[in-house]
Simulated assay, not measured.
Amino acid sequence: MTGAPDDGLDALETPCLILDEGRVRANLARMRAHLDRLGVAFRPHLKTAKSLDVARLAMAGPEGPATVSTLREAEYFAEGGVRDMIYAVGIAPGKLDRVGAVRRRGADLAVTLDSVEQAEAVSAWSRRHGDPLPALIEVDADGHRSGVKPGDAEALVAIGRALDGAALRGVLLHAGDSYALSDPEALAAAAEAERAAAVEAATTLRAAGLPCPVVSVGSTPTARFARDLTGVTEVRAGVFMFGDLFQAGVGAVAVDDIALTVLATVIGHRRDTGWIITDAGWMAMSRDRGTARQAVDQGYGVVCDRAGRPYPDLIVADANQEHGILALRKGSAAALPDLPVGARVRILPNHACATGAQHGRYHVVGADGRAGAVWPRINGW
């Protein structure tokens, strides 16, 4: 566009994913400083990023440590030289050969499980292949999802003993119910409950003569609001690196911390309804409407100018597959911005993981405010 700023955005095909490198670095620095004060190691979760370039910013070193949520991620990061990884999703026996293939590349990939059945499958595979797979027992911090109850000593010990052909490495927890909170005191309490459950499970295993060197906890909200992590050895968290509107609603990040936006182009107007139409529909933004359950419903995303500054009360109010409908929030007294056809806007996503999954690369905005570097990212399982 004539007279457009020299920010590199007009050279990009839209819709596409923009990543603010400075914000990513700042988010990581804050988390590291917080966890350093609490005396625990940081094992970044790479399920949001799915990018080796981002991983290298997040990890303590080029070999890790790291957390992954898919074996595709494990394979990709192993190819990039990452050696210390936890696959933090319950292992399906049919996936053990893929785990073994990653390990044969030199990566120490550990698996997660929460049943004797899984433990027996892991042990049998380990004995067949002469590779004692490291395994962590998933413990249920809050009833959110998978895991053994922390007070179920019988189940914990039975699983640990069923790993006789493998290598029990410790316990792993994820306080997923923290995502439904927003009060700082409630979030701090959730973090303490996660810590206490982890320590209880680890104590049970050790009292039975079983090893438990790793006590791993983590979610972005509990990592952010934890005040004491005594007995914990490491924290896993990931979405905080990018931030999103859902996490801003929780209070785990500020809107100004959000590093991920979708670049879109205005393609039309409906002046009778006060709509501005862009080329970024739900295929670009994802269908995630998680903020609809929060105090502030952000639609499909908050609309910003090309520098990433939010327009007052302008959201993606609705979306079709390839059309985004921008409108002012109901009841707003703000003025609809003058955005002619061809204008570029940036949209803050509800859920960074879901929005990122719609794209194959990041266009990176550097310290000079220009989009230059392209960082590949992966998808799939």
Rank of each mutant, 00 (worst) to 15 (best):
A188T: 12
S216N: 15
A226E: 02
M1W: 10
A207G: 00
L19Q: 04
V250K: 05
A119F: 09
A58P: 13
A248N: 08
V68N: 09
A264E: 02
S69N: 07
G64A: 07
M31S: 10
V111F: 10
H34Q: 08
V239M: 12
G100E: 07
T70P: 08
R206E: 11
H34N: 06
I18E: 10
L46Q: 02
D244H: 01
V365C: 06
R98N: 04
H129T: 15
V214P: 05
P221W: 06
E13D: 13
E194C: 15
R127V: 15
E13Q: 14
Q358F: 09
L109V: 06
D6K: 14
G165Y: 00
R270T: 13
D297P: 07
G268Q: 05
D297S: 03
R370W: 04
T112C: 15
V250P: 02
I258G: 04
V89A: 05
R377C: 08
Y87R: 05
A110K: 12
A254S: 15
L12E: 01
E21F: 01
V199L: 00
A373G: 00
P93D: 11
D6Y: 03
K50Y: 09
G251Y: 08
R32S: 08
T278K: 00
V266I: 14
G100M: 14
V157I: 15
G324N: 00
L136Q: 07
V262M: 11
A327T: 08
W125T: 06
V102F: 02
V341N: 05
L38V: 14
H323N: 13
L339Y: 12
R370P: 02
R224G: 02
D20V: 09
H45F: 11
R30M: 06
D53G: 03
D368C: 08
L96Y: 05
L173S: 04
L38Q: 09
A135I: 11
I86N: 01
R329K: 08
C212V: 08
A198W: 08
K330T: 10
A259W: 06
V116A: 00
E13W: 09
A175I: 12
I347G: 05
V253L: 13
A33W: 10
L187I: 12
L96A: 04
R72F: 03
A354I: 11
D142H: 03
G243S: 08
A259C: 07
T112W: 04
V364H: 01
G151H: 14
A155R: 15
R23V: 07
